[in-house]
Design a protein around this nucleic acid. Structure first.
Lengths: 203, 203
DNA sequence: ATCTGATTTAACTATTTGGTTAACAAATTT
DNA sequence: AAATTTGTTAACCAAATAGTTAAATCAGAT
């Protein structure tokens, strides 16, 4: 058996599955569509991944593996707090342009199946807030930033960065912009968001 | 035919449909489950609402009608900018506690079917940003707040308020909190978020 | 060359699911 | 009260869909 080819089929399936699951979610995805996209027979899906559920879990874990380093960039990185916020914000836009459906997919499926987070927690590199917490408290002690709970600050950073993408269709309509203008607005946020945050916390 | 009873059945169906659609989305919802929850025969669903699609649209519009006033509270209200941000933030938490799945549902279904927003736009009371824009620009001219695009500020306000609920399962795991602590954290945000925003923009 | 195990396919199955039908019941009109 | 309209149900149908089976093919080992 050609190992390269079989590996190819397996990743071919995973890629096709990613495409379909990320766009349509677990409930909306169809095994036939995944098979078609991978140019294989539907039975092969079940040969490599026993069931829709297992294929979904493989996709989900793989998606989270891409997202985790992004989150770690703000949580577990040693650079200066302000610089970190700037870099994270700048990078996040580029990341979402590359994987437009990914954050929405992860959040959506988690909110339909909250227990699933436990399976992710077990994986290594699951982001934790401990380091960030220390850094924020140090900055407060040094008088660099105003007092704020690290958790609240973290949630603010994440919210300001992720939501404009997840809420795109709604926000686009509310601010009354077409796709192109909205994309421009998002790009501006690369710098605007970090300044907004830093303005708020710096002394 | 008893008009009260038939009205009851119709709203009974709509309520059951809301429950199911909001939790499981269009793709995940089952007509049978809705019928069971409404204590009626599945055929009655089709008697009142011809198809799943039409029932879904009724639910979606009804959901948006609840959300729109919340958004209008920050967009089309005459009170002072800072006061408005404070009131909106405070009210929004209460609103989401009452309708936990609603914002997520609206955003999720819109991102799976972006064209749907057009149907909402036609409805009266669809929120628009015009008034808010004028107010922000006036505040900038008067030297009350730093220069910022009204659209960016609006997106920031909405993001900081909505995302912590939508991303709850993920955020809860990242900040390493149990449900109870996270709920407390969310309640604190009633005041924290508005201060965070105002801190950032005030001169 | 042939055997062996992995890969792939076509055809099939069982179940789920949205939707329909036809008959019955209850209310309203005449 | 007879006729008509509206509301409700049980039984059914057809399409969609996840999953299975059994046979065929392919690559490497013997």
């Amino acid at each position: 058996m050609n190992n390269k080819e079989s590996e190819n089929t397996e990743t071919e399936i995973l890629n096709a599955a990613k495409e379909v699951f990320l766009q349509k979610g677990m409930a909306g995805a169809r095994m036939q569509e995944i098979a078609d996209k991978a140019n294989i027979n539907k039975a092969l899906l079940h040969y490599y991944y026993r069931s829709k559920q297992l294929l979904f879990e493989a996709v989900f874990k793989s998606a989270f593996k891409l997202l985790a380093p992004q989150l770690n960039r703000v949580l577990n990185d040693d650079t200066d707090l302000f610089e970190k916020i700037r870099k994270f914000t700048e990078n996040y836009v580029a990341f979402v342009i590359k994987h437009p459906y990914l954050p929405n997919f992860v959040i959506q499926e988690l909110s339909k199946n909250p227990d699933f987070i436990q399976k992710l927690r077990a994986e290594k590199n699951f982001p934790t807030i401990d380091k960030f917490k220390i850094q924020v408290n140090e900055a407060i002690d040094k008088g660099i930033i105003k007092p704020i709970e690290a958790e609240q600050l973290f949630i603010n950073i994440i919210s300001l960065n992720i939501f404009p993408f997840i809420g795109e269709p709604l926000l686009m309509a509310l601010v009354n912009m077409d796709k192109e203008s909205y994309k421009k607005l998002l790009k501006k946020r690369k710098t605007e968001v970090s300044e907004f945050i830093i303005n708020s916390i710096k002394i």
